[in-house]
Design a protein around this nucleic acid. Structure first.
Length: 827
RNA sequence: GCGAAAGUGGCGAAAUUGGCAGACGCGCUGGACUUAGGAUCCAGUUCCUUAAUCGGAGUGGGGGUUCGAGUCCCCCCUUUCGCACCA
């Protein structure tokens, strides 16, 4: 046979055409749930180019999807576009292209790239969140939430982005900086829509235990983000008026040590204090400057400041009178927006007390007979100990036991109650921007906010020509959109002019893939039950406390609404590592260090590019990409793997003929064992998404394979066909071509994934490491079935071993079957 | 500041989870074949010592548990990530 070189371009194009024609990757609508696999990668924001990070993400999912196909599963492996959002608007303003056109162009470009890359997406199920057929159901979900009281309108202090001129959710602000625009976030009081995610806070934490297939890091981050704490709400009272001022504390056992109380500047409690004169002036001035400070300036660790209100409050436990302060280190939205300050035992209160000369009072002694001395303290004491100076509670160990005693007392006296608090806030979803999903609410002056009836959905986003951010939604200036009639009374009414946070659109897209063209329902719920939950969800860890909480929340709501019968959307989550340049810098256009995957695939081949990415590091680790990474796998592919087909001998049914270790001898037996060891390694490591070692195992097999030493045609062909199957998930075009060249019928992806012959996983001989006192002294080759006695005899006969045992007494011998013998000597 | 994860050759990494450290690959060195080679093939490649074996050291540093530690425990150092006044 004339040697043929590996013409990857022709091969890759030809197979992509063939796969599309045979609709190999189209998923059935209603699979057998026991034999289905939902492989999901996070859908993409259509920025126009596919970078190395996308490429890595998608080839990992692709390899899994292909292996599952070979395992005989019905595989759903869809893709789509997270298509609403601010960058489209920015591009529109900058270049004068309408956001819809800009988005559609980018989708077309990105889709073409992914199709050229040969990823096994089922393109017949593609969705885009900006498509009215899609966002009709985003709106329908909103109305469902609204009817259940889970979409609520509130006036609250919000994160305001002064550059993008819109509200941001908590999850979109990092360190007081807006994630997208980079602006310092300001506080602003606004009316907007919220999803009542806090009602699900407990379940969102507790159900994480149902997710052993999720990385611990993500579960921990979510737990901390939701931030559950158990504490006590205690009513202090204003001395003059007797009005209740509740505080929240997780340490009620330190309440006798409260020497002042602090209220957040936003708190309306202050308005009810009846402040006058200097007090009013001072407090008002402080409140105003605190509120105009940006989030980052305000929360910057360091100096705390505040002002005295001139008022005093009474501690209900001991009747003590303590001063009431206003300070911005107390957060308005957490607990009651007010705290008791125990400077002796809380670091922050300590710092504040020192700054303003407020007194300290000790209520915990570290040991039963050792008290602290205030004048010697340069930090608060937050350690263990025993309660003191606290009347009837003295002597109780501080912490859980004391907290219980104090809490029970407050409840029985009626001035306090146990409460659970969360750091998680309700999800702010109103955005004062154009390019988003319209909120399907009609504001009627008589009937209040009304959900748009189902038969009037979708509320179509009108095509407007002005989308400059002005601090209120551009849709508010479109009378044809705005003016409508109330669905309840028929009177004149106005539509809500805000659009939804794009994270709403991405919280349910995985359901739409299952039945993307359904016009009468979000999806056929029977089909949803057959495919869901997602078997493997792959994406970056950046979404740990955003999207990955939101989509769990949506799933739980839909379960409560009776549409779903499961609590969690994805049983296994995998966060792939980042792709950076060779110096470890994040790739970005401004740095000019971007490597284009499409360029790489065109010059070196798709499969070689994939193998290079897989081989460089296990999937969860970061990759510092350099084109040098390609060299090794490229040589392997062209010079070692591709020529395998020429050694193929054309046995019929080489994969089905029976072969056994006992029926073979010499090299044939060795290569048969090696083949089965390789199957086992590739199978196990690919399950863990460790494709780097899968490739290493295949390299070893191919190097050891020598056709000239094999007389059995069946064995020879078995090795070749199996190797092709094992590499197929990682190098699909190459495998498909070789499969066909070896005369196999149909696609390699319809062939059965190899399983290892359990009788053929060990060779005839094993190498035993011989140690003396734990140090390696020799290795000996023995028959695989040799007993411990035989092995000890050989080991003790070794001169290298004797060198270290002569003249010494053997104390004991430790034998690890098939691996190691350790001889312990003394003297 | 709090929390978590990770530190293994010149480089990317492997190590059956407590059992031969460095598989596989890059790079490098030497050789073969070549008019030529940045192609291909073969051999070597943790460090020290050695002609080579032998021997010794070795998984960020220090201690510990164990017959045996990259792996488990304690204390440091460094890096990365997450949270960042949540009372």
């Amino acid at each position: 046979m004339a040697e043929q070189t590996y013409d990857f371009t022709a091969i890759e194009k030809a197979w992509q055409r063939q796969w599309a024609e045979s609709r190999l990757y189209e998923a059935p609508d209603q699979p057998d749930p026991a034999k289905s696999f939902y492989m999901l990668v996070m859908f993409a924001y259509p920025s126009g180019d596919i970078h190395m990070g996308h490429f890595r993400n998608y080839i990992i999912g692709d390899a899994v999807a292909r292996k599952q196909l070979m395992l005989g599963k019905a595989v759903l492996h869809p893709f789509g576009w997270d298509a609403f959002g601010l960058p489209a608007e920015r591009a529109a303003i900058k270049r004068g292209v309408h956001p819809a056109d800009w988005t559609n162009q980018n989708i077309a470009m990105s889709r073409a790239t992914l199709q050229e890359a040969g990823i096994s997406f089922d393109w017949s199920r593609e969705v885009a969140s900006c498509d009215p057929d899609y966002y009709k159901w985003t709106q329908w979900l909103f109305t469902q939430f609204f009817k259940k009281g889970l979409a609520i309108q509130k006036k609250t202090w919000v994160n305001w982005d002064p550059i993008d001129k819109t509200v941001l959710a908590n999850e979109q602000v990092k360190d007081g900086i807006a994630e997208r625009s980079g602006a310092k976030v300001e506080k602003k009081e606004l009316v907007g829509w919220y999803f009542a995610i806090t009602k699900y806070a407990d379940r969102l934490i507790d159900d994480l235990e149902q997710l052993p297939g999720w990385p611990d890091a993500v579960r921990r981050m979510q737990t901390e983000w939701i931030g559950r704490s158990y504490g006590l709400e205690v009513d202090f009272t204003v001395e003059e008026t007797g009005e209740k001022l509740p505080i929240y504390t997780t340490r009620p056992d330190t309440i006798y040590g409260a020497t002042f109380m602090v209220v957040a500047p936003e708190s309306e409690l202050i308005d009810r204090l009846g402040l006058t004169g200097d007090d009013l002036e001072r407090v008002t001035a402080y409140r105003q400057q605190a509120l105009t400070k940006s989030e980052i300036d305000r929360t910057a660790a360091g100096e705390k400041d505040g002002v005295f209100t001139g008022k005093y409050v009474i501690n209900p436990y001991n009747g003590e009178r303590v001063p009431l302060w206003v300070a911005d280190y107390v957060l308005a939205h957490y607990g009651t927006g007010a705290i008791m300050a125990v400077p002796a035992h809380d670091e922050r209160d300590f710092a504040f007390a020192r700054k303003y000369g407020l007194p300290l009072k000790l209520v915990i002694r570290p040991k039963a007979d050792v008290s602290l001395v205030i004048s010697e303290m340069d930090d608060a004491y937050a350690g263990p100990g025993f309660i003191e100076n606290s009347g009837q509670f003295d002597g109780i160990p501080a912490g859980e036991e004391a907290i219980n005693a104090f809490s029970t007392y407050a409840e029985s006296e009626g001035f306090g109650r146990r409460r659970t608090n969360f750091k998680l806030k309700d999800w702010s979803i109103s955005r004062q921007r154009y390019w988003g999903c319209p909120i399907p609410i009609i504001h009627c002056p008589k009937c209040g906010p009304q959900a748009v009836p189902d038969d009037q959905l979708p509320v179509v986003l009108p095509r407007v020509e002005s989308y400059m951010p002005k601090g209120r939604s551009p849709l508010a200036d479109v009378p044809e959109f705005l003016n409508t009639t109330c669905p309840k009374c028929g009177g004149p009414a106005e539509r809500d002019a805000d659009t939804m946070d794009t994270f709403v659109c991405s919280s349910w897209y995985f359901l739409r893939y299952i039945d993307p063209k359904n016009e009468t329902a979000l999806a056929n719920w029977d089909q949803v039950k057959a495919w869901m939950p997602i078997d493997l969800y792959i994406g970056g860890i950046t979404h740990a406390t955003g999207h990955l909480i939101y989509f769990r929340f949506f799933t739980k709501v839909l379960k409560d609404l009776g549409y779903l019968d499961f609590d969690e959307p994805a049983t296994r989550l995998f966060n792939h590592g980042m792709v950076m340049d060779a110096e470890g810098e994040v790739m970005s256009k401004s740095k000019g260090n971007v490597v284009s995957p499409i360029e790489l695939m065109r010059t070196r081949g798709i499969d070689v590019s994939r193998l290079a990415m897989f081989f460089t590091a296990p999937s969860e680790m970061p990759v510092l990409w350099s084109d040098d990474s390609v060299t090794g796998v490229e040589k392997f592919t062209h010079n070692r793997f591709w020529p395998l087909a020429e050694s193929y001998r054309g046995t019929t049914d080489a994969l089905k003929q029976s072969l056994s270790r006992d029926g073979l001898s010499g090299y044939e037996r060795d290569i048969y064992v090696k083949l089965n060891q390789t199957i086992k390694r590739v199978d196990e490591d690919s399950e863990k998404l460790q494709f780097n070692t899968c490739i290493a195992a295949l390299m070893e097999l191919v190097r050891e394979y020598d056709a000239s030493k094999i007389s059995s045609d069946t064995l020879n062909d078995r090795v070749i066909l199996t190797a092709i199957q094992l590499i197929a998930p990682m190098a699909p075009h190459l495998a498909e071509e070789l499969w066909q060249r070896c005369g196999q019928e149909g696609s390699v992806f319809r062939s059965a994934w190899p399983s290892a012959d359990p009788e053929a996983l060990t060779g005839d001989q094993v190498t035993i490491a011989v140690q003396v006192n734990g140090k390696l002294r020799d290795t000996i080759a023995v028959a695989a079935d040799a007993g411990q006695g035989d092995i000890e005899a050989v080991a003790l006969g070794s001169s290298r071993v004797q060198q270290h045992t002569d003249g010494k007494a053997v104390v004991k011998k430790i034998y690890v079957p098939g691996r190691l013998l350790n001889i312990v000597v003394k003297g």
